[in-house]
């Protein structure tokens, strides 16, 4: 790692104040940032340790939802009884990611801010517009098996690696932020961005912003939901395609539906038209396949990842079928 200074923030206001200095970064769990610093991809001149701020609680909200502290550990969130009971797809998504050790370290806020695992982003010997704006994209025309099929640009085809975020997108979570100009709420769909011609920017956070919590609305689709993750090995691997699915059923008819995909785009992918295509339809594979085709209508493969388009369609049908058939399970 390159040389850097280290300071511990003693309050959220202190953290935001210290973040004014350029080249500083917050560190909480450290599992992604320190790895990127070792790889010389992230080069902060100063770390502000926010891990001891009192933002690690999971609390009820006035609206009947749950507020997940930004510094609550991924493991503590996944195993929280309220999360398991009311938001089983979220618990399942967290436990599908990383390893037990990493989940004990990684925080919810940090999970949102983790960077892509694109191999070109990590390899400083190759061009990457996300790491080094303007240098080019190694993945376009390179090895791109793990890359995006939706929402990519001619600058970047990286995907967001999180499992947690896919479930948060499906659940319509809201990210609470404290910044130099005060506090604000960011709907989850607006938190991550598509690469466009600024692939170096992953989120809509502004300099100095500190994520303080992630709020879940009351509706958790606990009766009919699941998180399905398809990957190259059975555990401890990033998703090729993942699906967070939630259904509200009226007998055999879909009354409400949520569908978010991971591993396919620069952000968790939701498509209101695909969800609308499910409403009022029988909860059956034909309706699920039709919705999948709506969601994937603009999907575009590259040399090594075109398989993801059919894989995503099948994963959507399977996830929605599982969600319809049985109560969402919260175990991994």
């Amino acid at each position: 790692m390159r040389s850097f200074t280290y300071a511990r923030a003693d309050s959220a206001a202190d953290a935001v104040g210290r973040a004014g200095a350029s080249g500083t970064a917050f560190v909480a769990g450290g599992t992604n940032l320190l790895d990127l610093m070792k790889a010389d991809v992230a080069r902060p001149g100063g770390l502000i340790d926010i891990s001891r701020l009192p933002l690690d609680r999971i609390e009820e909200t006035a609206g009947g939802g749950l507020r997940l502290g930004a510094l609550a550990r991924n493991a503590d969130t996944a195993y929280d009884e309220r999360v398991q009971t009311r938001y089983p797809m979220l618990s399942k998504a967290i436990l599908a990611g990383a390893s037990a050790q990493l989940r004990n370290m990684a925080t919810n806020g940090g999970n949102l801010l983790q960077r892509t695992r694109c191999y070109y982003f990590y390899d400083t010997a190759t061009p990457c517009n996300k790491r080094e704006p303007g240098s080019g994209c190694g993945a376009i025309g390179g090895v791109n098996r793990i890359h995006a099929i939706l929402g990519a640009s001619d600058q970047c085809i990286a995907v967001h690696p999180s499992d947690l975020c896919v479930a948060l997108a499906a659940l319509d979570a809201v990210v609470q932020v404290r910044g130099p100009d005060g506090e604000r709420s960011i709907p989850f769909a607006e938190f991550h961005r598509l690469p466009g011609d600024r692939p170096e920017i992953d989120t809509t956070l502004r300099p100095g912003d500190l994520v303080t919590s992630i709020d879940l609305p009351a509706k958790g689709f606990a009766e009919h939901s699941t998180y399905l993750k398809i990957r190259d090995r059975a555990s401890y691997a990033f998703a090729l395609v993942s699906v967070a699915a939630g259904l509200e059923l009226d007998g055999g008819t879909v009354r409400d539906a949520r569908l978010a995909l991971g591993g396919v785009a620069h952000k968790p992918w939701r498509d209101p038209e695909a969800e609308a295509a499910l409403i009022g339809k029988p909860a059956a594979p034909d309706s699920f396949r039709a919705a999948a085709r709506v969601l994937l209508r603009d999907a575009k493969g590259h040399e090594h990842n075109s398989f993801k388009i059919e894989l995503a369609e099948r994963a959507i049908v399977r996830a929605l079928s599982e969600a319809a058939d049985r109560k969402g399970a919260s175990h991994p």
Partner: peptide, 12 residues
């Protein structure tokens, strides 16, 4: 609690 000692700073 088990963690990866390589991905945390001693100071943390």
């Amino acid at each position: 609690r088990r963690i990866n000692a390589c991905l945390t700073l001693a100071a943390m």
